[in-house]
Design a protein around this nucleic acid. Structure first.
Length: 414
RNA sequence: GGACAGUUGGGUGAGUUGGCUGAAACCACAUCCCUGCUAAGGAUGCGUACUCGUAAGGGUACCGAGAGUUCGAAUCUCUCACUGUCCGCCA
């Protein structure tokens, strides 16, 4: 959630930021007004309640002194009726505000490039040269078929489209990658955690998936529970509604989880292969930091993810997302895109974001800075998406006959 | 899933004849004082959110969550959640 006080006090500045992210200024104007309405509604309500409390206190005295209370009672009852109305008004204002505020995306950082969509993203640098092939490189699904690595049909049979089954060596490679990622992250200082893959609605709201993106989530029927779309949700919300101490920070977490996404709205995109599945494995990094620490940690996280790709010998590039392509919760995001020779292009394999205090405000994660409670900064990033790494290995390490070499660093994990 | 018990501030834990308890006490923590070190002692402070105020200092709400009874609820009623114990089931 954005800082509504800031929006109110510096409206022009705030709206300029959000326009960069593609938010209509009229909605912001509306939000500002709703906030002001709520404030004044609450003020009058609280005043009325204060009066009622004062009168109620008198009852005790009156009773002890055996005074007549009928007049006082009549007064309080009148006040009560007034309060009921004021309460309804305040409640309506509250609901109206929440509806808009929870759907409002985060402010982008000033340094974020202006742009409408992914075409305006800015490449920062390339790492490793793509390999020269003396044959036409195949796409991963062809290789998967040749090697018997992925069983698309039976995945669909078991669940539905966009599910698949890994078999034999590919299944072991998947497991090796998870272990490799976790080990690297741990060496960087991330604590490994193993969390529930199902979280409740409050947690999903904390990290920003709810209420706006309910359609992208698998919900458990009849329960207040959802399959997590990313480990960012449980890892960040580990500290939901907590007040940390300054010396605990930064907290660095890493965890492997499967991720479940409905992929609503991506019909027809990446229908072949396992680039876009309803269930995929991912190893995630999450950092809980002070505002002062977050820039540095962010850089470290980007470096870490890039380093993993380098260790795997996978050519990739770093891309800074423009305002229009930035996710809902992010202030700034750097994507890592891995080179896929079969597709002849770079594809996203990791996305690392600083959400500043946006998630912290929703999830009520604070720390004690002296006497004051201050919202933390939360960061998240993949290190890495496992399925897409598997795809990248297949395409980059393929031989002309369709066989695939195993990267050196993974051999000890197989 | 069934039965019973419980859910109070960072922790332990009072408070269940409704008002004087937003909450005793102890511990932890912070600042200060004293003691040459160490051990110990003393004073004060110490929940969260919103809100009014330059500030000092006020106001409102919160004793698992929600609803209700009442002039007034941590204290009474209902619903739900969670925890514990026993039973059932089970990797």
């Amino acid at each position: 959630m954005i800082d509504l006080k800031y929006l109110q006090k510096n409206f022009d500045e705030a709206s300029a930021k959000l326009v960069k992210k593609g938010v209509d200024e009229a909605i912001l104007e509306n939000l500002k007004e709703l906030f002001a309405t709520l404030k004044s509604a609450n003020a009058t309500l609280e005043e009325a309640k204060a009066e009622q409390n004062r009168m109620s206190k008198l009852f005790g005295e009156y009773m002890r002194e055996k005074k007549d209370i009928t007049k006082l009672k009549a007064e309080v009852n009148a006040k009560k009726e007034e309060i009921v109305e004021l309460q309804a008004t305040a409640r309506k204002a509250q609901e109206a505000l929440e509806k808009v505020a929870l759907a409002m995306p985060n402010f982008p950082d000033d340094s974020v490039p202006v742009g409408a969509n992914e075409d305006d993203n800015v490449e920062i640098k390339k790492v490793l040269e793509p390999r020269e092939f003396d044959f036409k490189p195949k796409e991963h699904w062809e290789l998967a078929e040749l090697n018997g690595w992925i069983d698309f049909e039976r995945g669909v049979k078991l669940a539905k489209s966009r599910f698949s089954v890994l078999r034999g060596e590919s299944a072991r490679l998947e497991r090796a990658l998870i272990n490799f990622f976790l080990d690297v992250n741990r060496q960087r200082g991330f604590e490994e955690v193993c969390v529930p893959f199902i979280n409740n609605a409050t947690m999903l709201q904390g990290t920003g998936q709810l209420p706006k993106f309910e359609d992208d989530l698998f919900k458990i029927d009849g329960e207040d529970l959802y399959l997590i779309p990313t480990a960012e949700v449980p890892l960040t919300n580990l500290y939901n509604d907590e007040i940390l101490t300054a010396k605990e920070l930064p907290i660095l977490l890493t965890g492997y989880t499967p991720c479940f996404r409905k992929e609503a709205g991506s019909a027809g995109r990446d229908t072949r292969g396992m680039i876009r599945q309803h269930q995929f494995d991912k190893v995630e990094m999450v950092a809980i930091t002070t505002p002062h620490q977050s820039e540095e940690i962010f850089k470290m996280m980007v470096e870490n993810a890039s380093d993993i790709l380098t260790q795997l010998g996978l050519p990739h590039r770093l891309v800074e997302l423009c305002g229009g392509d930035l996710g809902f919760s992010a202030s700034t995001t750097i994507d890592l895109e891995v080179w896929l020779p079969g597709q002849n292009k770079y594809r996203e394999i990791s996305s690392i974001s600083n959400t500043r205090d946006f998630q912290a405000r929703r999830a009520k994660i604070r720390y004690k800075d002296g006497k004051k409670n201050v919202l933390v900064n939360t960061l998240n990033g993949s290190a890495l998406a496992v399925g897409r790494t598997l795809v990248a290995i297949m395409e980059n390490y393929q031989n002309e006959d369709g066989t695939v070499e195993i990267p050196e660093v993974l051999k000890k994990y197989m």
